[in-house]
Design a protein around this nucleic acid. Sequence first.
DNA 1: ATGGTTGGTCCCCAA
Length: 264
Amino acid sequence: MRIVTWNINSLRLRMPLLAQLCQDTSPDIVCLQETKVPDSLFPLDAVRALGFDHVAFRGMKGYNGVAILSRQPVTVLEDAPDWCQRGDCRHIAIRHGTGAGAIDVHDFYVPAGGDIPDPVENPKFAHKLAFVEEARAWFSGRDMRRTVLVGDLNIAPLEHDVWSHRQLLKIVSHTPAETERLLAWQQTGFVDAMRHFVPATEKLYTWWSYRNRDWSRSNRGRRLDHVWVTPDLQPALRGMDVLRAARDWDKPSDHVPVMIDLDA
DNA sequence: ATGGTTGGTCCCCAA
């Protein structure tokens, strides 16, 4: 099974890029974030034309929005809370398959958190910390098996998940307040599937700011997008790829897709 | 220390 996660930064604008991605990688499941499309305007026909007959989406006007596209039938899991009671379309989860072979997939878009890394001064940062804490608490109360969690978690937890650990310690996405909380969430029962393939001592990024003249040359990236799996799926991990080339596509997202292959 | 770019919506917000 091949799963791809991507913060697409407007599904309607980048439908041709999604088609390119699917042609290049033939994923079984695609998890999208920042679809920026209300459910009534979701481009369902165009997504079906790519081979995804089973689509779960949760969107709103202008911001946020997540979607899971699947070739095989899925059921939407409805037991998660409305995170921070905001109704802001940052999570959707599905079950793929049935019985002992079923796999659950959670797709998250964690709040970016604004610019000031202080929850008192900056309500967006407070929201981000509360969101991650709430997610940690919810997952810690579950007996999880055969579960994959992906998405734009908007936090780069490890030293080599950013271009300069020292220079980003006070930059939102890499502050200790965030990285500690993210790792606590991960430790409720997940393995970092990207770092299963790439040692923590190696740089690994999935996002490069639009605000750089030459993103590739300056290479000031961060690993904001993640794939976690429960330990029972770790032996099934077969491959991982960060599709860096997508950052140079026409009218690119600032995030690139991350692909994971599971023998499951 | 600062400003840099993009997308969606509606004259600015979020990233």
